[in-house]
Design a binder for these strands. Structure first.
Lengths: 213, 213
DNA sequence: CAGCGGGGTTAGTGGTCGTTAACCTGGTGG
DNA sequence: CCACCAGGTTAACGACCACTAACCCCGCTG
């Protein structure tokens, strides 16, 4: 474990504090002086590490989107390589996303809150990564719940993301017993949501309109 | 229906456009000139209607928090007055929240995104309204799913709010067939989530730790 | 020991933004 | 006809803020 955290570099410190501050007060609500102060240097010293304030946000958002996607891809590949059932792969995806949501709360917040503050090129990259991540989920979900049309499945995935990403809101008094219990509860909630969506098809006549691909 | 929309007053126009802009670009990302331009007047003309930019945000957030709470109270009272089962009351709460989420997307976004930009007094008021709304749900949820400890139920409610409030994210191509289908899907997702949380108690030994009150 | 470059510092600088001031106008009641 | 007032306008002010410039220090390496 000592190789995992070999004294964080200054860049990493800055990114971590910037993420926290951006999540707390919004991108426009935080000044570079505050970010600098949070890591012990002051103001324009940040420009020795980043070309600008927006570059920090970009790196944060690209980073988390990329890590989510690669993590998801790895889990999907593990399931496909072995003969694992799709339901197990979905379990694994859910677990991975919960880990992110619980361990990187500020990033989860930024991830769907400050995307529009990026330059076009960065924003497109992040959106592309996010879209791939969603489509990864959609494929797995449709294997597990084949009665869901593609559009329905996508809506379900977005909704479950909203559910899993709600962790920031329940952090106030450390309400839940512990991390493991919270993770287990979120897992059950997510699975239940998919089950519920799959259960009855709601209005008949709306489902078969969505062609498979 | 003509009495419902008797030509929107200027104040209402301003609030509506301000909500849209705040939701799109964040409170700090929108200038008063843009808000004014969105309603056909320009810049400081807004100060004939509001004492300042923050007052607009405050009115928006207090408004939606209040409407959510009063709507929830009404639905709970209707269920209690008649001999309705708690499950029906929960259905009604879910339906009401979905209506808000689908009809007032910008406000739903602001509601959990820009709360910290308010003055202390306003923020406390909004938080109080939000807390009462959550507690209303928690009570109903615990009647329907009595095996949930209070803290668990509260976490579930927050998570389901996250789920229902995810509607902004799926709006891109009008993915789902129509409003009714989307609402039905969200309803099934929410109910399924509660069912999933209630299903197996996860780790035994963690549940009975949470005292009822 | 020279030099040099990574990583700081403080002092501007230009631009944006919320807010105020001063002024205008068209309708309305006495 | 006059006073007034709700609801605008433009101009300006002051604060803030991202970013740049100029300078500095110190641990290397040759």
């Amino acid at each position: 474990m000592s190789t995992q955290a070999p004294a964080p570099t200054r860049r990493e410190q800055i990114l971590k504090e910037a993420a926290r501050l951006f999540a707390e007060r919004g991108f426009h609500g935080v000044g570079v002086d505050e970010i600098g102060a949070a890591v012990g240097i002051s103001g324009p010293g940040l420009y020795r590490h980043f070309p600008g304030k927006e570059a920090m946000l970009a790196e944060l958002l690209v980073g988390i989107s990329g890590r989510l996607l690669t993590g998801g891809k790895r889990r999907a590949a593990e399931g496909e390589g072995a003969g694992r059932a799709p339901a197990e792969v979905l379990d694994s995806l859910i677990e991975g996303h919960i880990d992110f949501a619980l361990d990187d709360r500020p990033l989860i917040i930024l991830h769907d809150r400050e995307l529009d503050r990026l330059r076009d090129t960065d924003r497109k990259l992040v959106r592309s990564l996010q879209r791939q991540y969603v489509e990864l989920w959609v494929e797995v979900v449709r294997e597990v719940y084949p009665r869901l049309a593609e559009a329905e499945a996508r809506a379900c995935v977005h909704a479950v993301f909203g559910l899993l990403n709600s962790t920031p809101h329940l952090g106030r008094p450390g309400a839940l017993p512990g991390r493991a219990a919270t993770a287990a509860l979120l897992h059950r909630l997510a699975l239940g949501a998919f089950e519920g969506a799959h259960g009855a098809d709601g209005e008949p006549g709306s489902a078969e309109a969505g062609q498979a691909r």
